[in-house]
Amino acid sequence: MNRFSHIDLRVNAWEQVCEFYEGLLPELGFVNTYHSRDWYVFAAEGELPSVPYFAITVDANHKPNSNLIGFWAVDRAEVDRIAETVKRLGGTITTGPGLLPISPTYYAVYFEDPCGNKYEMMHRLN
């Protein structure tokens, strides 16, 4: 059983990250939107609340930290594609894409959104 439900993410300003998340999250499978006055919600296919979702809210005092959100890629080509998407949308690549010394087949890209929130897109065989 996959126990993942959702992510509640803070950003400094929606205007600062709007283009980034509206471009990136559908690429990661969060294709349905349920935005309200206080939350910008991107959900997987299906009906809430039974599908994973990514919810973003504004906190002007938000300070990014060392927390990291990781996503599986189906193959190395998807890691590369997401890295290009991140760059095109104004994110920052911090490492990769490439093989990393975590395991012989660990291929990943680490990146940040325009507010400094940290992510990883990775693929590995073992």
Rank of each mutant, 00 (worst) to 15 (best):
A73F: 00
I56E: 03
L24E: 09
G91F: 12
N12S: 14
G70A: 15
P49M: 02
W14L: 13
I69V: 14
Y34C: 14
V79W: 06
L125C: 06
E112K: 05
A77P: 09
F71Y: 11
R76T: 15
F42G: 01
E27C: 13
F4L: 04
Y110M: 03
K87D: 14
Y110A: 05
N2C: 07
R81H: 04
G90R: 07
V11S: 00
G96P: 07
A108Y: 01
G96F: 13
P26I: 09
Y119L: 05
R81E: 09
A77I: 13
N67M: 12
E112A: 02
V109A: 02
I93Q: 05
Y107E: 06
M122K: 08
N65I: 01
Y110F: 07
G96C: 11
R3K: 14
Y40D: 00
V17H: 05
R10A: 15
I7M: 13
A13N: 11
A43K: 07
H62E: 03
V51C: 13
F30S: 03
W39N: 10
L89Y: 00
Y110R: 07
T33H: 04
E45F: 07
D113A: 07
E15Y: 01
P104E: 15
R3M: 12
D8F: 05
R76G: 03
V11M: 08
E120K: 06
D8T: 04
R81V: 01
S36D: 11
N32S: 15
V79A: 09
M1R: 12
G96Y: 10
S50Y: 14
A73L: 10
R3Q: 12
L25F: 02
L48Y: 04
G29C: 05
V51M: 12
Y34Q: 15
H35C: 08
Y119M: 06
L100W: 08
P52T: 00
V109M: 07
H6P: 06
I93P: 00
P49V: 10
L100N: 07
G29H: 09
T57Y: 09
S5W: 06
D75I: 01
R124D: 11
T85Y: 01
Y106S: 15
V58S: 10
D59R: 10
F4I: 01
N117F: 03
N117C: 05
R88H: 13
E47R: 01
M1S: 14
C18P: 11
N67E: 07
F4Y: 11
S5R: 12
W72N: 15
V86L: 12
D38W: 10
A77W: 02
M122A: 11
S66E: 11
G96H: 13
R10H: 11
E47A: 03
L9R: 03
I69A: 08
F4N: 02
L9H: 01
A77F: 02
W72G: 13
Q16W: 00
K63R: 04
T95N: 09
H35L: 10
Y106P: 15
Y53V: 14
F20K: 02
